[in-house]
């Protein structure tokens, strides 16, 4: 009983892990001159790649200094027939120390009830696999799990694991495409190409607005080069200069399934520190 349970709980938890990280946290206050050490491999050496990198970096770096955050989220999964199922989750995130590592995050499942209390701790990396531990409340078991499954979906959702670390700047190389007017808003259009192994994508196209420098839409192209999914980010709200989208809608064009990820109000600088993201904290969640 517990073994199968642990597996489904694992999947469910993985579902979420990434959400916790700095994903949908594209940035505001732009700084044109890179004050951080650029990763030259990610930056590239053509005018298009450098311009694409700089637009992405402006986005990513405007998020710097958020410190830590807590937020509740609900995920609504909808199949082609329109049937829905829902999950609710809590995220805690600790900002990365620098651009050579990723954020640390803790995700706790609140529903469905059979996976309540399942938790996932992630120490994100840039090109190496993340360190991840899963807590299974029925057994009180903490399990180190593989994070090699980048392109897998989770629990029927249309988000893949890798979709949640989309804004880690150095995970991609870039190519600037041009400007586009979308519904009266001027956008920079930037192609990006995963640098990490085992990605399910050959390319993503991102639309980043020129006003607050946030990603508004991302298209995902599969290994055969076909359009697989579209992510729409909306309901941006500002918290002391940090912008967060509160609705992320992913549509899969191959299956016609959709997943909405809806965040409540974010809390920042809640006093979380490194000690709240060590493996041992998993045992005191439930």
């Amino acid at each position: 009983m517990s073994n199968t349970l642990s597996m489904s709980a694992l999947k469910a938890a993985l579902a979420v892990t990434l959400l916790g990280a700095s994903f949908f946290s594209l940035p505001a206050s732009a700084q044109d001159q890179p004050t951080h050490a650029d990763d030259l491999m990610a930056r590239g050496d053509t005018p298009e790649s450098i311009k694409g990198y700089e637009i992405a970096a402006r986005s990513d770096r405007s998020d710097a200094g958020f410190g830590d955050s807590k937020v509740e989220a609900s995920m609504v999964l909808r199949n082609a027939a329109g049937q829905t199922s829902e999950r609710s989750l809590s995220f805690s995130t600790l900002e990365k120390e620098n651009e050579t590592v990723g954020d640390k995050s803790l995700v706790i499942f609140n529903s469905p009830r059979d996976v309540e209390g399942t938790a996932l701790l992630s120490h994100a990396k840039i090109l190496d696999p993340d360190d991840q531990w899963l807590f299974l409340p029925a057994l009180k078991r903490v399990k180190r799990i593989s994070s090699a499954n980048k392109s897998g979906p989770f629990v029927g959702s249309e988000f893949a694991f890798e979709d949640f670390t989309l804004t880690e700047l150095n995970k991609f190389t870039y190519a600037y495409v041009g400007e586009e007017d979308v519904d009266g808003m001027m956008m920079d259009v930037v192609d990006r190409f995963p640098r990490y192994e085992k990605s399910g994508y050959t390319k993503q196209i991102s639309w980043i607005d020129q006003d607050i420098y946030q990603a508004r839409k991302i298209e995902f192209y599969d290994r055969r080069g076909g359009l697989l999914k579209t992510l729409t980010l909306s309901d941006y709200r500002e918290y002391d200069g940090i912008w967060r989208a509160h609705k992320l809608a992913m549509v899969n064009h191959k299956t016609n399934k959709e997943t909405d990820l809806i965040y409540s109000e974010f809390q920042f600088k809640t006093g979380l520190d490194e000690g709240d993201f060590v493996k041992g904290v998993l045992q005191r969640i439930r």
Binding site: N3, T4, M7, S8, K11, L77, N79, V155, G156
Partner: peptide, 14 residues
């Protein structure tokens, strides 16, 4: 062997 279907219902077999 452990098979996880990764569906909405978290179907799995061991």
């Amino acid at each position: 062997g452990r098979l996880a279907f990764n569906d909405t219902q978290d179907t799995s077999m061991l």
